[in-house]
Simulated assay, not measured.
Amino acid sequence: MSFASLTVAAFAQQATSPARGVGVPSAQGSVRLEELTVEGQGGSPARVLVAREDPRGPIDGFVAKRTLTSTKTDTPLIETPQSISVIGRQEIDAIKPQQIGEIINYSPGVYGNAFGPDTRFDFFQIRGFTASDTGLYRDGLQLFNFGFGSYKVDPFGVERIDILRGPAAVLFGQGGPGGLINIVSKKPPLDPLRYIEVGGGSFGQKYLGFDIGGPADADGHWFFRLTGIGRQGG
Rank of each mutant, 00 (worst) to 15 (best):
P167D: 04
V170D: 15
S2F: 00
L36R: 03
S30L: 12
L49G: 13
Q125A: 15
L193P: 10
I181W: 13
E35W: 01
L36Y: 01
G233M: 04
F172E: 12
G214V: 02
P177S: 13
Q41K: 11
Q125G: 15
P177C: 02
L33T: 00
I95P: 06
F156C: 09
T130W: 03
P177A: 09
F11N: 05
G149F: 14
T16I: 06
F210L: 14
L77C: 07
Y195H: 12
V8D: 07
G140C: 01
G109V: 01
A218K: 14
L68D: 05
K65C: 09
P177Y: 04
L226Q: 05
K206I: 05
R194A: 13
S17A: 06
F123D: 10
L49C: 07
Q99T: 11
T227Q: 06
T130Y: 02
F156S: 15
E79R: 07
P192L: 09
D74C: 04
R127A: 11
A131D: 09
A51P: 14
F3S: 09
I87S: 02
D54L: 01
P58Q: 10
G230V: 14
N105L: 07
Q90D: 11
P167T: 03
A218D: 11
F11Y: 02
Y111L: 15
F224A: 01
H221W: 07
F144Q: 14
R66L: 01
F124S: 04
K206M: 11
Q41I: 15
P108A: 14
I100C: 06
L77R: 01
T71L: 02
E91S: 13
H221G: 08
G88M: 06
P55R: 03
F115K: 05
P117H: 10
G109E: 11
G214W: 01
F62S: 10
A19L: 05
L49V: 05
A9I: 01
A216W: 02
E35G: 00
V48T: 10
S2V: 01
I181E: 10
T16D: 13
S202C: 02
P76S: 08
P97A: 04
L136C: 08
N113Q: 15
